[in-house]
Amino acid sequence: MRLKVLNLTYHPSRSPQIIRDDVTKLDKLPRRVAAILDLRDDDDENGGVDGLISDISELAAWLVLAGVPHLTIYEHDGVVKLHISELVRYVSKNLRLYFGTDSIPTFAVRVPHTNATAYSHPALGTNVDLTISVLSRVDGKPTILELTKTMSELAANKELSIKDISVELVDEELVELVGPEPDLLICFGPSLDLQNFPPWHIRLTEIYWEPGNTDVNYAVFIAALQQYSQCEMKVGK
């Protein structure tokens, strides 16, 4: 409710300076932000793949403005993975609305499962302002199973000893296959439902969601960054 009022009265969409001002007040920022998005019916407002893509492009613009270099998108069914070229086009278009035609930030879209990467400005090399990784259900438990199978093949060929399978080794391999663990996970649904998010990758992640919220909006986004800036990290202590 509080956020709904805030969202109505304060909606700095497409005002880069205001978003940056909101962020400079914070003590710290996450390096990697993940978001769980829901695919809605095609008939709904902001529904279907197009709705998802437009949500992702808004998030991408806010993250560039906040100065966060990595965005992970999780959508259970993985429909976005089939529309990467559209995604790149739409994110570019949206960034143009924020930054103007001459100074569009560079970004890359990665699909770790197929090991594919698409760049917004292929000519400018691989050094980008924002990396977007697109994940789905297959990057979670099924990838852990695949890794188990691969390890068993290596072990059968005597290339890996079973006693060398450790948390560090598994972590290294899964970071390679899926990417590093996000620092902050924002759930844009009304209740906290992790929808089979990769379990290995949510160990220490700060989780934020707003009860009752149903869409991707700036108020939830900035509230999540504010909570992250206040959290303390102890790891067991």
Partner: peptide, 19 residues
């Protein structure tokens, strides 16, 4: 306990029964 340790130990057992 940690869950990562749990998953790793399970993977290790599965790998040895696959082998």
């Amino acid at each position: 306990y940690t869950s990562r340790d749990d998953i790793t130990e399970a993977m290790r057992k599965v790998v040895s029964s696959l082998v």
